[in-house]
Amino acid sequence: MRLGALIKKDLLEEFRTRYAVNSLLMFAVTALVMVSFAVGMNPLTGQLHAALIWIILFFSAMSGMARSFIKEEEKNTAPALRLAAEPELVFLGKLCLNFLLMLSLGALVIPLYYILLHPRPGSLAPAALVIFLGITGLVGATTILAAIVAKAGSKSTLLPVLSLPVLLPLLVTAINATGTAMGGGTLSDVSQALQFLAAYTVVIVTASLLLFDFVWND
């Protein structure tokens, strides 16, 4: 399967350098520790916990995903890829890879957050679902933006600047719904947010697929 080959290639590269994973991990852990020191023993509301979690996730995502296309442009491997696979395929490959990367990050950061800051657990299943869909949308919107940044001279500081306006509806919804769930909200309390996150992801990924050719090819 062609998509599988693209993902496998990136995983192999990642496995040998561990660049993205390392920088992502260090970033997330640094942010977590800082937050944990700042909060200390003060009790926070569910909303505040949710906001902190998403701030950590957002900025780690920015530092981790920026590399996904920059490395192809910097090392001049991008033209070889252009001659071998259709743009849609390349996009989907990077999308899947970023998704795997961010899911592993989430699987690490969230438990660590609970251990370090011990918020009230609230309702776990709705919270997990919101965070899962939120990460999906985050990856869906950021992947094409990472490609734009790679084409714009690989200035990785550009990514958060470009991402924030596009991601704002997603972040606002995700923070709010995560807060609701951490405050003990049930599945039906967050169902509207879940639908919203899914709709956002579908729309933005479809648009990315249509527009990616313009970004990827000169």
Binding site: R2, G4, A5, L6, K8, K9, L12, E13, R16, T17, K75, N76, T77, P79, A80, L81, A84, A85, L89
Partner: peptide, 21 residues
Amino acid sequence: EINLYDRLTALENLAFFTAAR
């Protein structure tokens, strides 16, 4: 101006480009 993947072996590179096509 076109490079192959430095981190992959010769075999892996060629296998990747075959599969990607």
